[in-house]
Design a protein around this nucleic acid. Structure first.
Lengths: 184, 184
DNA sequence: ACCATTTTGTAGTGATTGATACAGAACTGT
DNA sequence: ACAGTTCTGTATCAATCACTACAAAATGGT
C-alpha cells in the first residue's frame, strides 16, 4: 500500500552501521548518514525513526552477527575453548580490512549496558561449562579479564595494530587464563 | 601591563581538564567550558587559544602528573616492578572518586599518538631493565599487553567497576606477565 | 592626568546540528 | 478512474556549535 520505498532498508541499515562503527554515535551526523545512504532526511526518519533509534537498530544488527566475538565463544563447551575462541575471533576481526577496525560495542561509551550484558553472558557460560566446582567463583573474574582484554584489543586495533600485533597480545592473555585455571 | 586577569589560569586549566576527562573532547562544548570555568568565551580564547589548543594543554597537564600510571611504572628498575606498579597505580586511580573514572589518554580516540608514545616508553624501559638478554625481544609484546590491559581497565572503570573489581582483573593480568617472563 | 595595553561582558557571527512541514509522486484497493 | 496511503525532494525549523567584534573597564608607565 502506498508509494514503495526507493531504497533497500537492509543495505541502508548496513551502511549506517558501518558509519557508526567507524566514527561513533555522536561523531556521525544525520548529514553523514543521508549522504552515505543516498537518501533524504525524511526518508531516513520515516524508515528508522530518530538518530538514536537508528543507532540502536544498527547495534542490534551488529550483535546479531554470528561472527560476533562473544557469540562465537559462547558456543564452546569448556572454559579454555570459550576464551580462546573469543580471543582468536577478536584478533581476526578487529584488524580486518572488510570493515572498520575494532569492536563497535567495545568502543562506544554509550554501550556500557551491552558490554555488561556480554560480560554476564560470558561469566554464565564459563560457570556452566565448569567441571571443577571450586573454580566457579572465579568465572566472573575470568569473564571480566577476558572482556577487559577485548576492549583493549579493540582500541589497539583502532590505533592501527595489525592482526600479528593483536595476536601477540592475545597469546599473553590466553597464557594468563590457562595458568589461572590450573591454579584454581 | 594592562587589565589583570580576573581568574586563575591554572585552576581554570584544571577545571577544563576535568571536563574533557569526564566527557571527552567532542562532547565538551565551549559553553560547557565557559560555564564550568566561570568565564566568558573571549576570556577563554584569550587565555588558551582555540578549543583544540586548550585540550592539548589539558592533556599535557594530565600527563605531567607524577601520579600518572606510566610515569610511576617507568621509575622501577626491573620488568616485574615496572608492570606491577603500572597495574596497581591504574587500579587505584581509574576508579578514584577524586576525579573522573578511567584514563583520559586511554579513553580519547584522538590521543592514539599519546598512547603509542607511552607504549614505546614502556617497551624501552622494559628493554632497559632486562637482565636476561633473551627476553628482550618480547619487551614490545609485554608493553603492548600491558597497555592493552590499561585501556581495558580504563573502560571497565568508566563502566562502573570499582577498585576491587579492577584489582581482580589486574591480578590475572600480572599473573600472565610473570609466567611470560619465566618462560622467556 | 593621560596614554598604551590587556581583559571583561555583551552580543552576535556563519556553520552545522537533529528533526520536519509541505507538496507532489507513486503505489494499492475498489 | 478515483480515493487512500505512503514515500520522496525541497526547503526549511529552532538550537547549538566554535568563535569573535566591539566597547567599557582596569591596570602600569610616564
Amino acid at each position: 500500500m502506498g508509494r514503495p520505498r526507493a531504497f533497500d532498508r537492509d543495505t541502508a541499515l548496513d551502511k549506517a552501521l558501518h558509519l557508526f562503527w567507524a566514527r561513533g554515535y555522536e561523531q556521525t551526523s544525520i548529514s553523514d548518514l543521508t549522504e552515505e545512504l543516498g537518501i533524504a532526511p525524511p526518508s531516513l526518519y520515516a524508515a528508522f525513526g530518530d538518530k538514536r533509534t537508528l543507532f540502536e537498530e544498527a547495534v542490534a544488527r551488529y550483535e546479531a552477527d554470528p561472527r560476533s566475538v562473544t557469540t562465537a565463544g559462547l558456543a564452546k563447551t569448556n572454559q579454555s575453548d570459550v576464551l580462546r575462541t573469543m580471543f582468536e575471533r577478536a584478533v581476526q576481526e578487529y584488524a580486518s580490512k572488510d570493515h572498520p577496525h575494532g569492536c563497535l560495542v567495545n568502543s562506544a561509551p554509550e554501550l556500557a549496558a551491552n558490554r555488561a550484558h556480554n560480560r554476564n553472558l560470558t561469566a554464565a557460560r564459563l560457570r556452566e561449562v565448569t567441571e571443577d566446582a571450586e573454580s566457579s567463583d572465579t568465572a566472573e573474574n575470568l569473564a571480566a579479564f577476558a572482556h577487559v582484554m577485548l576492549v583493549g584489543l579493540s582500541s589497539y586495533a583502532r590505533d592501527g595494530a595489525d592482526e600479528h600485533q593483536l595476536r601477540a597480545v592475545a597469546k599473553l592473555a590466553f597464557h594468563a587464563i590457562e595458568v589461572s585455571m590450573e591454579t584454581g
